[in-house]
Amino acid sequence: MAEGVAYTRRALESAQRSESTWGLQHLTTVEKTLAAQADPTARDLLGDIVATRRSLGTSPA
């Protein structure tokens, strides 16, 4: 889990830096997995993905 969260965090940071809506769309699959997790780190990451999506004005695919 920790490794997956770390890779997803890096992907999110890349999407944030580039303001890539395409990159965020690809994180939708990961969002579904994160939503099912009780791990606080995974839940925090999910919140960050959702907040980034809102700030860039995109909706889940």
Rank of each mutant, 00 (worst) to 15 (best):
M1T: 06
M1D: 01
M1R: 04
A2T: 09
E3A: 05
G4Y: 00
G4A: 00
G4K: 00
G4C: 00
V5F: 13
V5T: 08
V5L: 14
V5Y: 14
A6M: 06
A6K: 08
Y7K: 01
Y7Q: 01
T8Q: 12
T8E: 07
R9H: 15
R9S: 07
R10K: 09
A11H: 00
A11E: 05
A11T: 02
L12N: 11
L12M: 08
L12V: 12
L12F: 09
E13T: 11
S14T: 14
S14A: 13
S14M: 05
A15V: 09
A15R: 07
A15N: 02
Q16M: 12
R17I: 07
R17K: 10
R17H: 03
R17N: 07
S18K: 03
S18G: 01
S18F: 00
S20E: 02
S20P: 05
T21P: 13
W22D: 15
G23A: 11
G23N: 06
L24S: 10
L24A: 12
Q25R: 13
T28K: 02
T29Q: 01
T29F: 09
V30T: 08
V30C: 08
E31I: 05
E31A: 05
K32V: 00
K32W: 00
K32I: 00
T33C: 03
L34H: 11
L34M: 04
A35D: 09
A35E: 05
A36K: 06
A36N: 03
A36S: 04
Q37N: 02
A38H: 05
A38G: 13
A38K: 11
D39R: 08
D39I: 11
P40T: 12
P40G: 05
P40Y: 06
T41M: 08
A42P: 14
R43L: 06
R43W: 03
D44P: 01
D44C: 11
D44Y: 04
L45D: 13
L45S: 05
L46M: 06
L46I: 06
G47A: 02
G47V: 10
G47T: 02
D48K: 15
D48W: 10
I49D: 11
I49R: 04
V50F: 02
V50Q: 13
V50G: 02
T52G: 01
T52N: 02
T52P: 07
R53I: 05
R53M: 04
R53V: 07
R54K: 07
R54A: 07
R54S: 04
R54E: 02
R54G: 00
R54D: 08
R54N: 06
L56A: 10
L56K: 11
G57S: 09
G57W: 10
T58I: 14
T58C: 15
T58S: 15
S59W: 04
S59C: 12
S59L: 13
P60Q: 12
P60D: 11
P60F: 08
A61H: 10
